[in-house]
C-alpha cells in the first residue's frame, strides 16, 4: 500500500542562512503514527509546517496521497487542507479569542462546504461529543475553557473533515500530566476509528514511545536514526540517540540512570560542518566522521541510523557509571 505521506530530501533554509531542515526523508502509512523527536533546533516543528505547506520548502519533495504538493497553488492548497491537518502546541493561542467554540468548530465544515446550517449544527454536536467536550462549552469563548479542553477543540477542528493525515506539533507539551493522558488517549481512539495517519512531533521521549509506531530522531535538521518505536528504545544505534535516551529521566526512582555525556559544542545551524553534525559532541568520533555526510545504514529490518560506525558494529557507547 502506498504511504499517505512521502517526504523526499526535504530542505529548508530560513532567511539569514539558517539550515533548519537538511535532506530529510520519511514515509507515513495510513493508520500509522510516526514520532519525530529532537531537541530545540532540530527542525522538527519546521518539518511539521513544511509538510502542511504552511511554509514553502526550499528543496525536496512532499507527496500526499500520491500527489506532489510541494509547489501546489493557493486554491488547490486550500482544498487539500480538508485532508491534511495540523494541531499546534499552544492550545491557548491556537484559537481565535473572539469566536465561540461552536463557531470555531463550524469553521472547517463551512470552509469545505459541508452541508447546510442544520446539518453542520448536528455535526458540531457529534464532534464535541467525540472529543468529550461538554455541549455547554460550544457557546463559550476560548478564555473560558481549560488548556485540555481547548486542545480538544483544536483536535475537533482538525478531524472535522475526516483528514488522512494530522500533524501534531507537541500537542500535549504545555498541558498538565493528568490532562495530557486524556488527550493522548483521544488521539489513539481517533486513529483506531478512522485510520488517520499521524506525524507526532515532540521532545518528550516517553510520550513519543507511547504513541508512535515508528520514530525518527532528528539532530540539527537531519534524521540521525529511524526505527520501529520499540527497536529504537531497546537498541538505539546512533550515538546521539544513545545520549538522548540516557539523559531522559523516567518517573520512577528505581530505574538507574546511566548517563552518556556530550563532549563538545553543538555546531551553529548557519555554518554546519561537512560531515556528521554530531561529530563535535560525539564520544565515538573518528576521522571519517568529518569528511562527508554519514551513510544511512541499516541496523536491522526497518531500522536505520546515520553513523559510519554501524557497518563495523562499533557504534555503541560504553555504559557510563551508574548514578545514584
Amino acid at each position: 500500500m502506498s504511504p499517505v505521506l512521502s517526504v523526499r530530501n526535504l530542505i529548508h533554509r530560513f532567511p539569514g542562512g539558517v539550515h533548519a531542515v537538511n535532506d530529510v526523508s520519511f514515509d507515513i502509512a495510513a493508520g500509522e503514527t510516526l514520532g519525530l523527536v529532537g531537541e530545540s533546533g532540530s527542525g522538527k516543528s519546521t518539518i511539521g509546517l513544511l509538510v502542511t505547506r504552511l511554509l514553502a520548502p526550499t528543496g525536496g519533495q512532499i507527496l500526499f496521497e500520491g500527489e506532489d504538493i510541494t509547489h501546489l497553488g493557493a486554491a488547490a492548497l486550500r482544498k487539500l487542507r480538508a485532508r491534511l491537518q495540523i494541531v499546534f502546541q499552544d492550545p491557548w493561542g491556537a484559537l481565535n479569542p473572539r469566536m465561540t467554540i461552536g463557531h470555531l468548530m463550524e469553521e472547517p465544515l463551512t470552509l469545505h462546504g459541508q452541508g447546510d446550517a442544520a446539518s453542520r449544527a448536528a455535526e458540531i454536536r457529534r464532534l464535541a461529543d467525540r472529543v468529550r467536550l461538554p455541549a455547554a462549552s460550544l457557546a463559550r469563548y476560548p478564555h473560558e475553557l481549560s488548556g485540555g479542553q481547548l486542545q480538544r477543540v483544536s483536535i475537533a477542528r482538525a478531524i472535522a473533515n475526516r483528514p488522512k493525515l494530522i500533524v501534531l506539533d507537541e500537542p500535549t507539551s504545555s498541558l498538565d500530566l493528568s490532562v495530557r493522558a486524556g488527550i493522548l488517549q483521544l488521539l489513539d481512539e481517533l486513529q483506531r476509528e478512522s485510520g488517520v495517519a499521524m506525524l507526532f512531533i515532540s521532545h518528550d521521549l516517553e510520550t513519543v514511545r507511547l504513541v508512535s509506531h515508528r520514530v525518527a530522531v532528528l539532530y540539527l535538521g537531519r534524521v540521525a536514526e529511524q526505527a520501529p518505536a520499540e527497536q529504537l528504545f531497546a537498541n538505539p544505534a546512533h550515538p546521539y540517540t544513545q545520549v538522548l535516551l540516557s539523559a531522559h529521566l523516567p518517573p520512577d526512582p528505581l530505574v538507574k540512570l546511566r548517563r552518556h555525556e556530550v563532549v563538545g559544542e553543538i555546531p551553529s545551524p548557519v555554518n554546519l560542518p561537512p560531515g556528521c553534525f554530531f561529530a563535535g559532541g560525539c564520544p565515538l568520533v573518528r576521522p571519517d566522521c568529518t569528511t562527508g555526510p554519514p551513510p544511512f545504514e541499516e541496523v536491522e529490518a526497518g531500522h536505520r541510523a546515520a553513523c559510519v560506525r554501524i557497518t563495523d558494529g562499533t557504534n555503541h557507547l560504553t555504559p557510563a557509571e551508574e548514578r545514584p
Binding site: T52, A74, R78, K79, N96, E107
Partner: peptide, 25 residues
C-alpha cells in the same frame, strides 16, 4: 499568532483570514 496560522491551516482563504480572524483582534 498561532490562531492565524491555524486559520490558514483550516483552509481559510486569505481575505477570510484577514477579515474574520485578524481584523476583530
Amino acid at each position: 499568532a498561532t490562531f492565524v496560522r491555524a486559520a490558514v491551516a483550516a483552509g481559510n482563504p486569505e481575505w477570510r483570514v484577514l477579515l474574520v480572524h485578524i481584523l476583530p483582534n
